[in-house]
């Protein structure tokens, strides 16, 4: 397992994907900071919590593609086909672990940078949320990144395609799957004659879990959020359950493929 993890890290460091990811991230991080400092086009006043939400949006958008590479690096080019006795589950599990570790490092880095960025005096932030709120928000985003991470890995294993796993992952991140599930849910409710659902499926998508956190409708100024709008323990519990179920299903798929 350690050998596979080291191999994946070596491949990732020397691959062009890491360079592209780092280059895009650098552009985003520097560009966002410059905008905050008041030289960018967007000079609307924001709160630090709202700012972090906007900043992390980039990471959540690129995460499905990044996860697809982190997870499938050894499989996509058929390298694994040439490792004798290599179809054992350790190879796939090492991919899962590597994707989660890379996400921990990347999401952690983004959150750290984001939080530090908002401490710098700037022309954008007009309301600084307290440290506890910012810490809670950071933890929720970290959990959300793991939810999206495992969702993409699960989809790749289910569809057996890195490309489609990433595409569906992007759909989930952009809210397209939310709209799709919402439409299906509405059709189902109408067809069954039910007036409302006590467990809206659409609101359990990885996208909605985070979007509902930041409604941004605070009095007259919609870019200033003074407190988080959802029940955080319940949200974290939902994310934990989501992550656990998706991980278990992924491991079942890996085991099933291993027996073939």
């Amino acid at each position: 397992m350690t050998d596979f993890l080291k191999t994946r890290l070596y491949i990732h460091i020397h691959s062009r994907y890491a360079k592209v990811f780092l280059a895009f991230s650098a552009v985003w991080c520097i560009g966002f900071l410059l905008t905050m400092l008041g030289v960018g086009p967007d000079k609307r006043p924001i709160s630090s919590a709202y700012g972090l939400w906007r900043f992390m949006d980039f990471y959540f958008s690129v995460l499905p593609v990044a996860v697809a590479y982190w997870y499938s690096d050894l499989i996509s080019n058929r390298f694994a086909d040439n490792i004798p006795f290599g179809s054992d589950h350790k190879l796939s599990i090492s991919g899962l672990l590597f994707a989660l570790l890379m996400n921990l490092v990347s999401a952690g880095g983004f959150l750290l940078y984001g939080n530090i960025m908002f401490l710098i005096p700037n022309k954008a932030v007009v309301y600084h949320n307290d440290l506890f709120t910012m810490f809670t928000l950071s933890m929720v985003y970290l959990a959300a990144s793991f939810v999206r991470c495992i969702l993409v890995v699960f989809l790749i294993e289910l569809i057996k395609s890195r490309l489609w796993g990433a595409i569906f992952g992007i759909m989930c991140s952009s809210g397209l799957s939310y709209e799709l599930i919402l439409s299906l849910e509405t059709m189902f409710l109408i067809a069954t004659g039910a007036g409302s659902s006590s467990f809206p499926l659409a609101h359990s998508t990885a996208y909605m879990m985070v979007v509902t956190l930041m409604p941004g409708r605070d009095a007259s100024d919609q870019w200033v959020v003074r407190e988080l709008q959802v029940d955080i323990p319940v949200l974290l519990l939902r994310m934990f359950l989501y992550f656990t179920v998706a991980t278990m299903l992924t491991l079942i798929l890996i085991r099933r493929r291993d027996r073939k």
Partner: peptide, 12 residues
Amino acid sequence: VLIEAPGLFCSM
């Protein structure tokens, strides 16, 4: 083992 394609990392 070399099964059909070598499984190379082309950018390396």
